[in-house]
Amino acid sequence: MDLRLGSLFEQCLILGQQQQIRMRWSLMLDYPSPNKIEMSLLECIEKCEGYSEVIQSSDVLVNIDSDIPPWIVYLLICNAYEHGDVRLVREYVEFGQKSIVIGGGIGIIATTLAQVSRRDVTVIEANPFLLNRLSQTARLNDVNFQIIYGAVKAGVKQGVTKFHISKEFWASSLRKDTWQSTSVIDVPVVDLGALLLDDYDVAFFDIEGEEEKIFDAIALPQRLSTIFVEIHKPTIGEKVGAKIMNKLWEQGYRLVDSEALTFCWKR
C-alpha cells in the first residue's frame, strides 16, 4: 500500500471514530449520509485511481478498490459496513446450521455465516457485477459459497425480471424507484420457495424492498428456525414494515433482536 493511500485509510479510521459512524448506522431511522467533514475525505478517496487492497472489516477479509464507491470504502475501513448484521449473525447462528443469503452483496454476511456455522453457504445475488467479488471474498476468507445468479420476486418462479443497477451497488433492486439507478438489466428469476425446501436452518434476507411482498408469496419451511430480515423502512414505509412483522408472527416467528434496519426472528 502506498503511503498516500495508507494515510487516507488511517484518516478514515480516526474520522469514523470521531464521527461515531457505527452508532449512526445502528441508531438512525434513515440511511445515514456522509456529513460535511466526511465528504472532504471521501473526495480524496475518489481521486485515488487504480488501487486494490485487502483489508479486514468486521473480522472479514475483503478487497477494496477504486471501483467501489468512496462512501462504502469508508464504511468498510471503519468496520461500519453491515456491522450490526455481523453482530446479529455471530450471536444467533450456531455451529453446523445450514444457511442461505438472499442478496449477497460483496459477501460480508455470507462469510460471517460460514465462519460461525463452519459450513458452505448458499448465496443469491442479482447484480452480475458483484459475482466475482463474492467469489473473491470467499477465497480470501477460506470459505465456500454456492452462488446463484438471479433475483427473487414475489409470485414469480421462473423467467426473467428487470433489475435496476444503482451507482452504489448496495441499493440495486427490482424497484423502479431504485436510488441512483444507472441502468436496467434483465436477470433470471430464482424460485425461492422451492430453494428453501432444501433443509436450510438460517436465512438472511437483504432484498432492498422486495421484502414488502415476498412473505405474502411464500410459506417459510418449518425447519427454517432463524431468519434475519432487513426491513427497508425508509423505502417501504413504517406501515408496510409492521405488515411484514405481522406476517412473520403469523408464521410462528418471534422477534429476538434487532439493530438498525435488520431484525432477527426465531421459532
Rank of each mutant, 00 (worst) to 15 (best):
T182D: 08
C78Q: 02
L61Q: 12
C44H: 04
G237Y: 11
R133V: 05
F163W: 11
V184S: 06
D216H: 10
E82V: 08
I236W: 10
I227D: 07
M1G: 14
K36C: 00
L42K: 05
L196I: 00
Q222E: 14
A203R: 01
L174F: 01
V152E: 10
I68E: 04
I37C: 04
E125P: 05
I207T: 00
F204Q: 02
L220P: 07
L224S: 00
I55Q: 02
G105Q: 12
E49A: 07
D198H: 13
L248Y: 05
G241Y: 02
P69Q: 10
F228W: 09
Q251A: 03
E53S: 01
Q115M: 12
I102F: 09
G103H: 10
E259A: 09
D177L: 03
I55F: 01
V89A: 15
I72T: 12
L27D: 03
Q56D: 05
L61T: 00
C264R: 05
E49I: 02
L192K: 08
W170G: 00
E38Q: 11
L131G: 10
E91Q: 15
S26I: 06
F204V: 02
E168H: 13
D216W: 06
L224D: 05
N132Q: 11
S135K: 15
V189A: 04
D206I: 03
L8H: 07
R118Y: 06
I102E: 12
G237W: 09
I148C: 11
D206H: 10
A110Q: 01
I72E: 12
S172K: 09
C12G: 09
L130I: 13
I14S: 13
W265M: 13
V143W: 12
G209N: 01
I14Q: 15
I102D: 11
G237F: 08
S117L: 11
M39F: 00
E208C: 06
G96H: 14
V190A: 02
Q180L: 10
L42T: 04
L61H: 10
Q17P: 00
G241M: 01
L255F: 10
